[in-house]
Amino acid sequence: MTATPIPHLAGSGWIVARDPRLRVGAALAFALITVGLDHPGSTAAALGLALGLALAAGLKTRDLARRLLALEGFMLILVLTLPFTTPGASWFELGSLSASTAGRDLALMILLKANAVVLALMALVGTLEPVALGQALGRLGVPDKLTHLLLMTIRQIHLIHAEFVRLRQAMRARAFVPRTDRHTWRAYGWLMGMLLVRSLARAERLMDAMRCRGFRGRLYRLDTPHWQPGDTLAALGLMTLLGALAWLDHGLGLPGV
């Protein structure tokens, strides 16, 4: 009952010290600009920038690799299928299948963009404590209900996880060993059902306790914003870099380049 079940990306350095609002905003701006890029050269530059951010955020290579691996599995399917499914000039033939150069370029762009955005998200937002993220969203004007939902979910995930661990321990204490048989599946079914019922009951008790303390649908925040000069500096720096990225992309599209 000591650790949160949400794995937390440990970061360090100047990015982690920045205001959560800046980090959320920067991640959003980076994602929007990157998705809009048209040329492999500028997209590769965006990937380089994202990699730089990840390094600056002090992310461990192992953490990075593990999370990127989840993405690459999905990307692999894309890279394997897109050249064959996109119409265009032939790149190579494989039996009766024909791979197009357009499909190849498209797959490459998607691969670069997805990795760049995910890397930037990990560096900027992934290193935020979930609660800090919720509060930052609230302060950026995301509706109260949505931020409450996020904060409550984070709280409940922990409780549901703790409940799950307790129930599973109780099962193991009575010599339950998962096998591939009817008994196991039924036991797991009951475990999940019980988990849902208990979580609902707990949510109701939590709501009761909140009502007892005068809750009427509105959460008030205690924290005070602490935007620092360094945040302004970082915002300007990031804006310059993102502007350069867009400019580079535009320049690559000009005739004669």
Binding site: L206, A209, C212, F215
Partner: peptide, 25 residues
Amino acid sequence: LLFQDSDDQLFCPTVLEDVAFGPLN
């Protein structure tokens, strides 16, 4: 009202925020 199970009662991330929840309300 002090609840039987304190886990039902505490829901804010930090102790300070949880204790301040009632007064803010």
